[in-house]
Design a protein around this nucleic acid. Structure first.
Lengths: 225, 225
DNA sequence: CGGCATCCATTTTGATACTG
DNA sequence: CAGTATCAAAATGGATGCCG
């Protein structure tokens, strides 16, 4: 049962010893937007069986990146949340996502699964702190039946699963239109004009929303295309 | 021969499909400081067999992250270098290293291998752009028989394997003392005072060197540990 | 629903031997 | 040195059954 290790005295290698196994970083990605239940995690990660999911969670728990909590009443059901150490993987995962947005996205393949939260995290990955100077606003995103909110405070952006208490603005958009935002390089305002999305709330907050996120220019990895 | 994929339309998952397999990110880490030959790569990565190394390199080549080059005369021997897409994984790897410096380092275990380049990359990971405002300097680091140089230009730091053309300052340090810098939380000036390191060159450049890198405070992942 | 155990087919890996 | 070929040992994926 000796776990595999690179046996290198190196910060990168030691980190990958902890979170480099298959599925582990995606598990952390799911938890970055808030605690999740066992079943919800499995539903988000097609191909990950219950056995491996349980093993990964236990591993992360032993290593102090995740802890098991009991959701407050009336739910009272178990769930998994990131510890402080786990939360701090956020910047690393966002850096990976940023690379992917630039070099690996393109069109959605039909066999690929999709969850709105992934795009919301993609938004966070291309959040531009400069553009948010002096801005304090909470945006709520409603995608089909899923809800997220982003809290912008000056140079920081925090994205969480679930509704906001008092959003300054609310954006409603279909899942398909959301996919189009990264894949086809569309913008939110275009989606609103075409009727695929709608927005309401504070006009000034909505005006500034456009500039908060800058999608990196897509690059081609293959020489002759 | 279908390669395994998460099949998720998500920037993080797509990136991990490309570089998430075992050894792959460490391979990129090795190449971040400049082109390397097959044998040197294998020597740096104990446990990675020639077969898997060849497979990984071929994969990265197919995916446009690495390209095979021929070293200029008199070497004329094949080597591997990062493409632009590969280079841009640097920020992601540095983010991973930053996390590791804070949450996963501690003492070196006796069975762990070590190469000076890993610490030099660790330095780059905790480079503080603010502290380098207005600074343009090239530092050469000599560690036993390995040489690196760091080029600081205002807010950017570039670290490469090999000697510099015209370094502003040169730091010589033993491998053991270098390990002590991250593990025991020592500082470079202490190492110099104790005789484990020596520095020469431009006094002003050396004075500013101290503040360029701020090691993150070590955190404890285990609750009562 | 949450979570562990078991069985089994398929991949991935690690280690070593071998060739140009 | 660079890289292939080969084989044994893990890790994974998927199905299924069980129990609180």
């Amino acid at each position: 049962m000796e776990q595999r290790t690179y046996n290198q005295y190196c910060a990168t290698a030691r980190t990958l010893d902890l979170v480099g196994e298959r599925w582990t970083l995606l598990l952390v990605r799911e938890l970055l937007t808030g605690p999740k239940r066992f079943g919800d995690l499995q539903a988000s990660l097609r191909g990950l069986g219950t056995g491996l999911l349980a093993a990964r969670l236990k591993h992360l728990e032993r290593e102090g990146l995740v802890h098991k909590i009991t959701l407050p009443p009336p739910a009272r059901t178990p769930a998994y949340a990131l510890t402080e150490a786990g939360e701090e993987l956020g910047p690393a995962i966002l850096a990976i996502a940023r690379w992917g947005l630039r070099w690996a996205m393109g069109e959605r393949r039909p066999e690929e699964t999709f969850h709105p939260g992934w795009t919301v995290l993609g938004l966070q990955a291309c959040f531009d702190p400069e553009a948010a100077a002096g801005l304090h606003a909470v945006y709520e995103f409603r995608v089909d039946d899923e809800v997220f909110h982003a809290r912008i405070d000056d140079g920081t952006a925090e994205v969480l699963h679930g509704p906001a208490q008092r959003p300054d603005a609310t954006i409603t958009i279909s899942e398909d239109a959301l996919v189009g935002l990264t894949g086809a390089g569309g913008t939110l305002s275009e989606a609103i004009r075409s009727g695929a999305a709608s927005a309401s709330g504070d006009r000034e907050a909505l005006r500034r929303l456009q500039g908060l996120f800058r999608l990196p220019p897509a690059g081609s990895r293959k020489p002759a295309g």
